[in-house]
Computed example of a mutant assay.
Amino acid sequence: MTDTAPRTESRTEPLIGTHQQSDGYQTHYRHWGPASGEDAIVLLHGGISHSGWQQPLAEHVTATSDAAFYALDRRGSGLNAQRGHLPSVERELADIASFLRSLTGSFRRVHLAGWCFGGQIASIAAARLAGEGVVASLVLVAPGYAFTERYADVLRLSMQGIFSALDSLEVKPEPDRAFVPVPLQISDFTDRPEWQEFVAADTLQLDRITTTTVDVWDQLAALSRGGVLSELGDIPVLAVLGNRDRLVDNDRVEAMLTEQIRGTAPVVHRLDTHHAVQFEEPAALARHITDFLATVR
């Protein structure tokens, strides 16, 4: 594992652990803070990233509160096996639910969070668990429910090109072979040179995925936009958006949250950042999260 993240004086190294899923798969996670207590935050990363991208946020949360912070490597990502391959929607959601349930005996409240595409997946998982007492709140950081016109065009044209090339092949690639490139630019995440260097040097990020993963991601994205927020019940929601986000259409996302959430109105904050809010304003993001958690009892 290569760790090239910018260092700060307050940096604390996480515990790296594994959680065995029902099919025997070992899901890796990073853990900061106590192993038991009142509150635990479980954060899901975005499409190409992994749990290590949440280090700045985790450090600030655990330095300023008693909450534990868990960043989970989703199946096929980060330190996990079969990189770039996600077999099904149900497997993704079952993995998350299993990990969350594993913490309920150690913490009074388990808060599910997600950044980028992880926010969309977190909302589906939270809705599936609504009413079971597993998820105490939902925290969304720059969730990709709605894209900017620029990025929507880039994504559409990239996928069209990839699948046109696939259709022309006489021999189709295996469904678990990661070869489909992910169409994202480093500048889409942040304009900070030190963090651009971190992303460029990161050997754990996904640059290629399987065709099965493409299909599963499409299904998850559609589920997240298909009214799942209205199924959260009484789970309170915090959303933190980046004003300079080049990928996410903040106005449409905020409107969607306001229109679909039927319980307590979502708490929405905006910070002057690009998409990687946790890189550029981790202290402010941590403060919004810990202030919100203090209202969840």
Score class of each variant (00 low, 15 high):
T62C: 14
H50W: 09
H50C: 02
G47C: 10
D66P: 06
S36D: 05
I41Q: 02
P34Q: 11
H50R: 08
H45R: 04
I41M: 05
Q26P: 02
S49H: 08
Y25S: 06
V61R: 01
A40H: 08
Y29F: 11
S36I: 09
W53L: 07
Q54C: 12
P56D: 06
T62M: 10
I41F: 02
G46N: 11
V42H: 06
L43W: 00
T64H: 04
Q26F: 07
L57S: 04
T27G: 09
E38M: 12
H50L: 03
H31I: 10
L44A: 04
V61F: 10
W32G: 06
Y29K: 00
H28P: 00
E38Q: 13
S36Y: 09
A63G: 11
E59V: 03
E38D: 11
G33Q: 04
A58T: 06
H50G: 05
E38L: 15
W32Y: 05
Y29C: 03
H45A: 10
S22I: 11
G47Q: 13
W32V: 14
Q55Y: 13
L57W: 13
I41P: 01
T27P: 09
V42F: 00
T64F: 03
G46M: 09
P34N: 12
G46W: 03
D23Y: 10
E38W: 04
Y29G: 00
G52C: 08
T27K: 03
